[in-house]
Amino acid sequence: MSKRDAASEQTGQAANNEPTTQPTWSKLLISALLVMHVAAVVSPPLAFACRSRGGESAAIRAVARFFQPYTGAFFFDHGYAFFAPDPGPNHLVDYKLEFNDGRSPIKGRFPDLAAERPRLLYHRYFMLSEALNNRFAPPQFAPEPSPPALTASAGERERFAKIKTDYEAEKKRWQQARRQYEAMRKSIEEHLKYSYGADRVTLNRIEHLPADPEDVVYERKALSAAESYREMPETMPLGGPR
């Protein structure tokens, strides 16, 4: 507590129910900072909400980019889409470790509720497996769009130029996403090799589909039924423009 606060207590100053009588310039400055901060806080989830399969809102993207240094530095760049748009399947990672010295291979899976305690630690592993799946980008990109025929009109050629520009931008995003996915996968593999002293490691992304209510009611299907787990392919589908 500051000396001024202590002094105000000594004088028995009551809580003031009225706005402060600060100079106008001070209020204007604070107000401007508040508006900028609130706009920055809103911009990442707004940009996230304004995305669809057809692309993203150019206006909102520009606003989000403007605030990106601030939201990135303050860790405000989130979409807040908890269990949205739909509570979907969960993702796990299976691994197999092999050794050159004759030891038997070790198989494991994360997250593993039995091994990772307390629950928050388990959740960290769960998010790691989810993140690996979310970052997946296919190894090949879609082929370049075919140019229009020589007899194409000027409008068709202009449209192709736009498609080509979008294609190149999308390809650049895919290259970045693929680099990130490969780096993430490699880092996890290296960690497992280091932790167990293994020579080779194989990772498989697993998707666990939630049971439909009808399957549970009429077929007594268990949430852990073997058929609800499936291995995720590393090759398909091809990346490409949306």
């Binding site: 949205a84 509570p87 969960n90 666990h208 939630p210």
Partner: peptide
Amino acid sequence: GDTWWDGTALWYAFAQLE
């Protein structure tokens, strides 16, 4: 999302074993 409209979203949340 569809499931928040058709009323099944909470089921799919509860049915997530993980």
